[in-house]
Amino acid sequence: MPASRRLPAAGALLVLIGAAIAAVPALVSDFVLLQIVIKSLWLGIAGMSLAFLIGQAGLISLAQTAVFGASGYLMAILVLDHGLTIWAAVAAAVAAGPVAGLVIGAISRRSSDLYLMMLTLAIGVFTFFFAQQYQPITRGHTGFNGFDAPLLFGADLSERKPLFYVSAVAAVAVVALFRLVMRTPAGLAFRGLRDNRDRLQALGYSTSATTISAFAVSGFAAGVGGVISVWYNGAISPGSIDITRIIELLIVVTIGGTIRIEGAFLGALVVTLLRNYANEYTNRTETLVGAAFMAIVLLSRHGLLGILLNVKSLALKALRFFRGQRMASEKEAVA
C-alpha cells in the first residue's frame, strides 16, 4: 500500500481504537474495570516487553521484572525520599527503563538461548534480593507504601476511569512504538538475530550491539508498565519483582503467544481472570495457574493465540474438505 493511502487507514484504526477505549468503562462494572481491565493493561504492557524480545529478537529474558522494578522503585524513591515533583520522577522512571535494559543487555550480550535465559534469571532474582537487602535505598522488605498517583489535567489518576484511560493510551502508544521499531532497519536486524545469528554477523552486524539495543527498546515497555503498576498499587516492594512475578510475565507471554506482540494483552487478561475468579472454585489458584501454563506449553508452540489460529485453520480445512466432497458428489450426480 502506498504511504498516501496508509495514512487514512491508520487514522481510521486510531478512531476505532479510541472509540473502543471510550466505550469500555460504560460496558463493564467498576470492579471489573479496576481488578481486571486496568491490571491486564499494565501487566500486558510489561509482558509486551518480553513478547517483543522473544518474538522479534529471539532473546528469552527473565530479567524484565528487574527493569519493571527499576522504573517503579526509581519513581517511588525520587518522590518519597527526595521530594521530586511527580512528573519529573515519572519522566526519569520511564527513561530508566531503556537504561536498565541497556545494562542487562550489556551484561548478557554474548549469551543466547538457554544460557541467556539462565543469566537473565540470575539477574532478575538478584534484583529482587537487592531490593530486599539493600535497605538504605530500597527500604528492604516493606518497600514503598502510600504512593499517591499524580493528577493529570485535573483528573486524579488514583480514580478508576482516569487511570484506565491513561493506561489504555499508554498501551496503544507502546504498541505503536514497537510496531514502528519493527519497521526500521533496526527491527530487521532484531529479526535477523532471531532467525540466524551467524548470518547476521556475517553481514557485518554486531550481534552484541543488536542484542543490547533490543534489550533497551524492550526496556521502555517494562518501564512504562512498572510506573503504571506503582500508580495502580500505590506501592512497590520486593514482592512486586520476586520470582513468581518473573514467572508470571513468562506465563503472560506464553499464553498470549509471541507471533504478535499484542498477544501479551490476551495473556495478561487470561492470567488476571484466573487469579480473580479461580479462587471461587478452588483454594489452589497457583496450582491451577501453573497447570494451565504447563498445558499450554505442552499443547502449543504459540500459546493460546496459536491454539485459536490452529482451530481456525482446521475449521477452514474441514469446510474446504466437505465442500470438496459435495462438489464431487454433485459431479457424480451430473454424470
Binding site: 528469552i60 538457554l114 495457574v289 501453573g290 497447570a291 501454563f293 508452540r301
Partner: peptide
C-alpha cells in the same frame, strides 16, 4: 524443544 522444556519446568516450579 529447549525453550518449551524450560518453561514447562518453570510451570512445574509453581505447581
Amino acid at each position: 524443544d529447549g525453550l518449551r522444556e524450560t518453561m514447562l519446568t518453570l510451570g512445574a516450579t509453581i505447581v
